[in-house]
Simulated scan of single mutants.
Amino acid sequence: MTATMRMLTYGVAADSVDDYVRIGESTTIESLKYFVKAVVAMFSERYLRSPNNDDISRLLAMGSNHGFPGMLGSIDCVHWNTERSHNDINVLDRSSVFSLLTQGRASPVSYSINRNDYTMGYYLADELAMKDVERAFGVLQARFVIVQGLARFWKTEIMEDMMMTCIIMHNMIVEDERDANGIDFNYDTISESLPLVSHERTPKLFEFIQNHRRIRDRGTHSKLKQDLVEHLWTLHGDSL
C-alpha cells in the first residue's frame, strides 16, 4: 500500500521504493495494478456516478449565477500522453457523458434565455471552457503526479484503472472536505434460453435516435449560442 500510494501521489518509479519498503520492483507494479482495479470495482458506483437531481439543481444554480442559465458545466479533452492518443472529437464520441440523455433517462432540465424556452442542458466548450477544465485537471495532477507525465503502462485497461482511481480518490477528498467544512466547492440472472431477435425498429431505439438527433441539432445549437450572446450582453454590456 505504501509503495502504491507513493507511485500515485509522487509519480516515482517502481524501483525507487525498494530500499524504503523492502519489496522488489515487480511486486510494487503488481500491487499497483491490484490496488487500482480494486478501487474502481468498489467505489465507482458512488464516486463516478452520473449527476442526480440534486446535483443538477446545484449545477444549474451555479451556471445561472455566472450568467449562463441551463449550463451543466464545462467540457474539454485533456490528453494523457501516449503514442496512441485520440483527438478531442474521437474522445468525446467515446465518452458516456451524454449516454443518459440519449437513452431518455436524464433528469429534466428547463430554462429560458432571451424569451426562448429550452429543455436540454448544455456544456461550455472550446476556448471558454478550456481554462476551467485544465484548472480542474491541474488540481488532480497536483494530488496525483503519476498522471502528469507520460503513461507508464501499455495496456489501456491498466491506464484507465489508474486514471479512474485518481479521480475517485480526488472525489473522496472533495467530499470529505465538503462535509468537514460545510463548503460546496465550485470546481469540482440470465436465462438459458435466448430471446428472439427482431430487426424492426423498437420504440426505445426510435427514441434513442431522436434524442441523439436533438443533441446534435445544429439549428438549436446556433440559436442557443445567439440567445446566450444577447443574454450576456444584456447583463454586462453596459460595463464594457
Rank of each mutant, 00 (worst) to 15 (best):
T2M: 13
A3D: 10
T4W: 04
R6V: 09
L8S: 00
G11P: 01
V12D: 06
A14T: 04
D15W: 15
S16V: 05
V17Q: 10
Y20T: 15
V21Y: 11
S26W: 04
T27L: 06
T28M: 07
L32E: 05
M42S: 13
M42P: 02
F43L: 14
R46N: 09
Y47P: 04
P51G: 02
D54L: 13
D54K: 14
D55V: 05
R58Q: 09
L59S: 06
L60S: 02
A61D: 15
S64H: 14
H66Q: 14
H66L: 13
G67A: 08
M71N: 07
I75R: 11
D76L: 06
C77H: 05
R84S: 12
R84A: 13
D88V: 08
I89S: 14
N90F: 15
V91M: 11
V91L: 08
S96E: 09
S96R: 09
V97A: 09
S110V: 09
N116S: 08
T119G: 05
E127C: 10
A136K: 08
V147P: 03
F153Y: 07
T156Q: 11
T156V: 12
M159P: 00
E160P: 00
M163H: 02
M164I: 00
T165S: 07
E175C: 04
D176E: 11
E177P: 01
E177Q: 11
D179S: 12
D179C: 12
I183A: 13
N186T: 14
D188G: 15
D188K: 15
I190D: 05
S193A: 09
L194S: 07
V197L: 09
T202A: 03
T202G: 03
P203V: 03
K204H: 11
E207K: 15
I209R: 15
I215P: 01
I215H: 04
R216T: 10
R218S: 12
L224H: 03
T234C: 12
T234S: 15
